[in-house]
């Protein structure tokens, strides 16, 4: 196998996988969007309040707080995930 063949093969392989990658990326996006759509109307307001409460104790960027609402058949789950900044983490632990 020549060097050129190796190169061509790699290029071909990258192209071959692109549809599968597209499908995976879209599935994640669309599932997310659809679960957001089903979320109750009060969720945006509640998100703001939760962020304000967290903000009283630690300084976190908005992108480090994710709040998701999911519902299946007869159960609804509110998931709040806060990633604390390194230094604040020690502060929280010390407190």
């Amino acid at each position: 196998m020549s060097l050129l063949d190796v190169f061509c093969h790699r290029q071909k392989k990258e192209r071959e996988n692109s549809a599968a990658i597209a499908r995976e990326r879209l599935q994640i996006l669309v599932t997310h969007h659809r679960s957001d759509m089903k979320a109750p109307d009060y969720l945006p307001e509640m998100k703001k309040d939760i962020l304000a409460v967290i903000g009283k104790y630690v300084t976190v960027e908005q992108e480090n707080v994710s709040i998701h609402f999911e519902s299946a058949d007869d159960i609804s789950v509110l998931e709040v995930e806060v990633t604390l900044p390194e230094e604040d983490q020690t502060k929280v632990r010390m407190a």
Binding site: R15, E16, A19, A22, L26, Q27
Partner: peptide
């Protein structure tokens, strides 16, 4: 689509 370069009908329908 057969070469894996484009989303298939089934992919789009599923999504």
């Amino acid at each position: 689509v057969e070469k894996g370069e484009m989303l298939s009908v089934e992919d789009v329908k599923d999504i």
